[in-house]
Design a protein around this nucleic acid. Structure first.
Lengths: 232, 232
DNA sequence: GGCCTGGCATAACAGCGTTATCTAAAACAT
DNA sequence: ATGTTTTAGATAACGCTGTTATGCCAGGCC
């Protein structure tokens, strides 16, 4: 005796509208009433489909992680693993700058309508790092890194770039030490810090800058989520 | 023809109560009604004294910057400028971990009741860095750093440690790469990244760890703001 | 001592997330 | 095809939020 099923289009539409609102007008535009109004439904739709605003926000966070992973998946392994790992860093920043509000929610920046990340959410986020860890392993195997702990190296990169991106989005980085300047210096510094030579690191950082546009920036921002009829 | 003056004790009491609420119960406990109730006044007190919740939050942010500067002022210059600058990093993290919610507001992490930092607020925050820039200059003069741009070095340190602290407060850093592990590795890595040798950096990082407790942690958390009668 | 200004209490307003209630539509059983 | 069952989703209310209009009255000046 199966009951009435919820309209799957409603669910997708709600997420899309919410994501659009977050990206377009920021966190304060994200209200159940506003979303429902734009979807032409009532606020109850948010509760039947997601159990509340937190559930809807969580759905967006997961899509944000998927998007980041999408960017990461386009970083092709090459003979220069250091250029590869720096490109991961560039991809990370590109994702954050492209979806600033979503990024803030994903990594604890914005506290949205009482939403807070669960341990599972964080695990999902941390899992995205595994691609970087693998790349760090290749850097170590290639003798470019002094450190033997690939996971630790990945975490050093992650935390450092996350900090830069956070302050960049918070408009804390202005001339002469603007985000671009600090970012480039930091990338080289991080590579040298974990064992690469200044010359080799500089070359790899420059090489990764060349690869950024073709391998990451030109990628479709959303790798087509699996639902049908994503339009309103 | 001067009118009635506002009670200066009310103003201090409101800030103190708000700060206590933020530190003790987090951002969601910060409501005008709650603060007014605990102060034994009405919500209007918030408006006459601060023009709204944003003004009160801004007041707390400024006190947060003052507190950070207080910690920084206790880092004594020594013959090992690299140990000094690393100690600034430790002091920064100590301040953030001691006042996690306030820290989140200060650097754009939490969007509190529609509060957002102004350019002036950020300038205030950035100004705190000047002590670190000065220390970086000494490191360069001592021949420990390759880079010639002290301000850039300070920004690299700042962004990197800010990122670590943010993810630490967001509970993103768990074993085996917990916050302590990543922090120590990052400190050394950062020094090496800007030009120090691995051996010298390791020594200075260890030395700064020794100095942390006496020079920073034992400091009074609040250098007694100038208002009278801070108790409730 | 009276005046006048503005701090603060009261109460209302518009918004929020959430929940109780109810109708009606969808899916299965017959 | 009809009946039964179950829940999606509309409506409206509840308690909360920041904010504001109103009014009282305590205080500093003439």
């Amino acid at each position: 005796m199966s009951p009435r099923r919820s309209n799957p289009q409603t669910r997708s539409a709600l997420v899309d509208i919410a994501a659009g609102l977050l990206a377009g007008e920021g966190p304060q535009a994200l209200s159940a009433r506003r979303i429902a109004a734009e979807a032409g439904s009532s606020t109850m739709a948010v509760y039947t489909n997601f159990g509340g605003m937190s559930g809807l926000v969580r759905e967006m966070v997961y899509e944000g992680f998927a998007r980041l992973e999408g960017y990461f998946s386009h970083v092709a392994p090459t003979a220069d693993p250091v250029a590869d790992i720096v490109l991961f860093g560039r991809a990370y920043r590109h994702n954050a700058v492209t979806n600033p509000h979503l990024y803030a929610v994903m990594f604890g920046g914005a506290s949205l309508a009482g939403f807070s990340l669960t341990a599972e959410d964080r695990q999902y986020g941390r899992y995205t790092l595994s691609t970087v860890v693998e790349c760090a392993t290749r850097c170590i195997a290639a003798g470019r890194f002094r450190t033997g702990d690939a996971e630790l190296v990945a975490h050093q990169l992650w935390t450092a770039i996350h900090g830069l991106v956070t302050l960049e989005l918070g408009e804390y980085l202005i001339d002469p030490c603007n985000a671009d300047v600090v970012f480039e210096a930091q990338l080289t510094g991080l590579m040298v810090g974990v064992g690469d030579t200044v010359e080799a690191a500089t070359r790899s950082v420059a090489e990764s800058r060349r690869r950024l546009k073709t391998e990451v920036e030109d990628m479709l921002p959303d790798p087509v989520t699996d639902g049908p009829a994503r339009g309103v």
